[in-house]
């Protein structure tokens, strides 16, 4: 009895330390992993002079940003500062009135949302936006949609190759489910899951889409300390293992200061500061935005 338990434990450890293997293999087939010398230097995502207004409300004012290869960029700022708006502009859900966005030197400003997602800009949502009627595994499979290689007719007729492709994709999704430690609920309908698990499913869904840049919109909002640590661990694991740059919007300063390479601070649609965590903590503009002007001078 004990041996078997130990075996299982060992097996599980092994699985986690090498998690996401299948996904990584799948991604390596399509494009090479980033080179060492590019990390931290080559720009993968760039926004130039983005302006976004809803009627008279200026949501984003002349935003410029750069995301480099293998970088974890955090965006912080008070509520309503325009952080989510920026992500929405990047993923093509809102159209900026002015400004351009480039992804690896390719202009994506006018691409459709699903085209941008297929390029690999995958995101999670602040207010959970899962497909509530599907199970966890089906949610992940639905996100594999652009990568599944058979047309709907062979799906309807269920040709052998369609069946094989389903199984291959299923294996990749199960791998992600294992990585996120959600095996117990893989067949549960998402609508019935607890909040933390839903947030995790969102992360899994973004992973299933084969991200080349991961855009996370408040992945830890409303979680307790343990759940935040879990989530931070997952994000760092993904970041290390897939070697992809991550954009993280988060309100928890502890987490942000710990994990981010670089931080951008927004206030009222304007970018008020940018720099490493150490620089940001002493920046007077940031302090005045968060704590009030009287603290900024100190």
């Amino acid at each position: 009895m004990t041996t078997s338990i130990r075996n299982i434990t060992k097996h599980r450890e092994q699985r986690y330390s090498y998690g996401l293997t299948l996904l990584r293999e799948e991604m390596e087939k399509k494009y090479p992993m980033p080179k060492e010398e590019d990390v931290g230097k080559k720009v993968v995502l760039k926004g130039e002079g983005i302006n976004l207004a809803f009627g008279g409300l200026q949501a984003l004012m002349d935003i410029n940003f750069e995301l480099k290869e293998g970088e974890l960029l955090a965006i912080i700022g008070p509520n309503g500062a325009g952080k989510t708006c920026l992500l929405n502009v990047v993923s093509g859900f809102y159209r900026a009135q002015e400004g351009e966005i480039y992804y690896r030197d390719r202009k994506i400003t006018h691409m459709s949302s699903h085209g941008i997602a297929e390029l690999g800009l995958c995101r999670t949502f602040q207010n959970i936006a899962l497909y509530t009627g599907l199970t966890v595994i089906e949610n992940l499979m639905a996100a594999r949609h652009p990568h599944i290689k058979y047309n709907f007719l062979s799906g309807m007729l269920y040709f052998p190759w369609a069946s094989d492709e389903e199984v291959r994709q299923r294996a990749i999704c199960e791998d992600i489910v294992d990585f996120l430690e959600m095996d117990a609920v893989r067949n549960h309908v998402v609508g019935s899951l607890a909040y933390g698990l839903r947030k995790r499913t969102e992360l899994g869904r973004a992973l299933a889409l084969e991200p080349r840049i991961l855009l996370l919109d408040e992945p830890m909002a409303g979680m307790n300390r343990d759940e935040k640590e879990d989530m931070a661990r997952f994000i760092l694991d993904i970041y290390e293992f897939l070697k992809i740059p991550v954009v993280l919007i988060e309100h928890d300063m502890g987490v942000v200061m710990d994990v981010a390479d670089r931080i951008m601070v927004f206030d009222f649609g304007k970018q008020i500061a940018e720099g490493t965590p150490d620089e940001i903590t002493v920046n007077p503009k940031v302090i005045s935005a968060y704590l009030g002007t009287e603290y900024a001078g100190v």
């Binding site: 497909y131 009627g133 599907l134 599944i148 709907f152 799906g155 309807m156 269920y158």
Partner: peptide, 30 residues
């Protein structure tokens, strides 16, 4: 045919569009 449609790629895309069309668009479904 309908059953196969429902359990393969396109069927999942249908449900995705039904449950959350905005998210579906941003998650790579046209």
């Amino acid at each position: 045919l309908a059953k196969n449609l429902a359990r393969t790629k396109l069927g999942r895309a249908f449900v995705a569009v039904r449950d959350n069309d905005i998210a579906a668009e941003v998650m790579g479904i046209n």
